Simulated scan of single mutants.
Amino acid sequence: MSATDEGDLELIRKTVRELSRKYDWEYWREKDKKHEYPWEFVKAFADGGWLGAMIPEEYGGIGLGLTEAGVMMQEIAGSGAGMSGGSAIHFYVFPPAPIVRHGSEEMKQRVLPKIASGELLMAFGVTEPTAGVDTSRITTKATKIDGGWVINGQKVWITNAQNAHKILLLARTSPRTEEKPLHGMTLFYADMDRSKITIREIDKLGRAAIDSNELFIDGLEVADADVVGEVDKGFYYLVDGLNPERTVVGLEGVGLGRAALDLASQYAKDRRVFDRPIGQNQAVAHPLADSWIRLEAAEMVAMNAARLFDENKACGPESAAAKFLGAEAGFEACDRALSTFGGYAYAKEYHVERLWREVRLLRNAPFSQEMVLNYVSNQVLKLPRAY
């Protein structure tokens, strides 16, 4: 489902903006400083029903489309929450997509209402240290046993693992072949069993309120009932969530960039040097104006990708472009905000340094800008594949 009326979208923007901004700049600065998960923020969105944005109504969600979910996530990132707030909500909205589309009816009834209510926090386990962006080469392996599977392997950059109850885990169930390298992987809805999974948090540059982790999996048992869809087809189920995630990451980048632009614009009006506001100087004003234009363009591309997805039309190139442009425009706006603040940009009280640290992630994740260009080169321009 997707609302086509701009008035409906504006109501979502207004409602989410008001809810998000109850948690001010100082709230996020403290969460970042103390590395504290923003549970109060998550609960507020759970109470408002927003965690189930893209979960169908019959499973406890509100059954919205990608357009509405994208608007919601853009407003969260743009409120000052950045990727700390964005990721806290993002992981309720998009990782469940394979279950929504391919899980058994029993699994949907068992799992989705708990995600929508915020009762259940799920991690998403795909990336591995030795595979990088070549998912076909993951080595985490699931071995069949009576009534289920035993999983062994390693994952990296897994968000939420410190607090998650469950993990949607991709593992090899058949050997890789050159003919079908992406076949033979299966998605498991598994317990985050700390007796079988060793979790090590990664100390990182930004988004400190949200944990990122290495996982070492040794003898994790998963029942047959917790296989998502069919065995060996897990990677193809992931694709259902990739285009929406890329689109929304682009919109989150736009939100972050606009938050930084607002801070920089106000500072440029208030800060006086040589008896004039620094914003009167074109060297300050023009980069900010240029960023506004680029953010507007990135938003338009992302909203078009969301529309195509909601209309069940192909949107791979558009989603990739949305991620690329949102990450670029968002980072550039944050970087220019740093330049506007000059030396004060390094002071945490002005907040732009946190936005800069958080938006930089979007150039690398969920996949790099170079991989976007590889994809477009091959799929759109029909050039020889480089990867």
Rank of each mutant, 00 (worst) to 15 (best):
Asp8Ala: 13
Ile12Ser: 00
Ile12Thr: 07
Lys14Val: 06
Arg17Cys: 01
Leu19Pro: 01
Ser20Asp: 06
Arg21Gly: 05
Glu26Trp: 15
His35Met: 12
Glu40Ala: 08
Phe41His: 10
Phe45Lys: 03
Gly49Phe: 04
Gly52Ala: 06
Gly60Leu: 07
Ile62Asn: 05
Gly63Cys: 12
Val71Met: 12
Met72His: 03
Gly80Glu: 06
Met83Leu: 15
Ser84Ile: 04
Gly85Tyr: 03
Phe91Ser: 12
Pro96Gln: 02
Val100Glu: 12
Val100Met: 02
His102Asn: 14
Ser117Val: 03
Thr127Glu: 05
Thr127Ile: 02
Ala131Cys: 11
Val133Ser: 08
Asp134Asn: 11
Arg137Gln: 07
Lys141Val: 00
Lys141Phe: 03
Lys141Ser: 00
Ala142Ile: 00
Ala142Glu: 02
Asp146Val: 07
Gly147Thr: 08
Trp149Leu: 11
Ile151Cys: 12
Asn152Met: 14
Gln154Met: 15
Ala161Cys: 10
Gln162Cys: 01
Asn163Lys: 06
Asn163Asp: 06
Ser174Cys: 01
Pro175Gln: 08
Arg176Lys: 14
Arg176Met: 15
Met185Ala: 05
Thr186Asn: 04
Leu187Thr: 04
Tyr189Asn: 00
Tyr189Gly: 00
Ser195Met: 04
Thr198Lys: 09
Gly206Thr: 07
Ile210Ser: 02
Phe216Ala: 07
Asp218Lys: 11
Leu220Gln: 01
Leu220Val: 03
Val222Glu: 00
Asp224Gly: 10
Val227Cys: 04
Val231Ala: 09
Lys233Ser: 15
Lys233Gly: 11
Gly234Arg: 05
Val239Leu: 14
Arg246His: 13
Thr247Ile: 15
Gly250His: 00
Leu256Ile: 15
Leu256Glu: 04
Gly257Ala: 10
Arg258Thr: 09
Asp262His: 09
Gln266Asp: 11
Arg271Tyr: 13
Arg272Gly: 02
Val273Pro: 03
Phe274Pro: 02
Arg276Leu: 14
Ile278Trp: 03
Gln280Val: 11
Gln280Met: 07
Gln282Ser: 11
Gln282Pro: 09
Trp292Asp: 08
Ile293Lys: 06
Ile293Met: 01
Arg294Ser: 04
Val301Gly: 02
Met303Ala: 13
Met303Gln: 08
Glu311Val: 03
Ala314His: 04
Gly316Leu: 07
Ala322Tyr: 00
Lys323Asp: 04
Gly326Glu: 04
Ala333Trp: 08
Ser339His: 10
Tyr344Arg: 15
Lys348Gly: 11
Glu349Asp: 15
Val352Lys: 02
Trp356Ser: 05
Trp356Asn: 15
Leu361Ala: 13
Asn364Val: 04
Asn364Ser: 07
Leu373Tyr: 01
Pro384Gly: 08
Tyr387Leu: 04
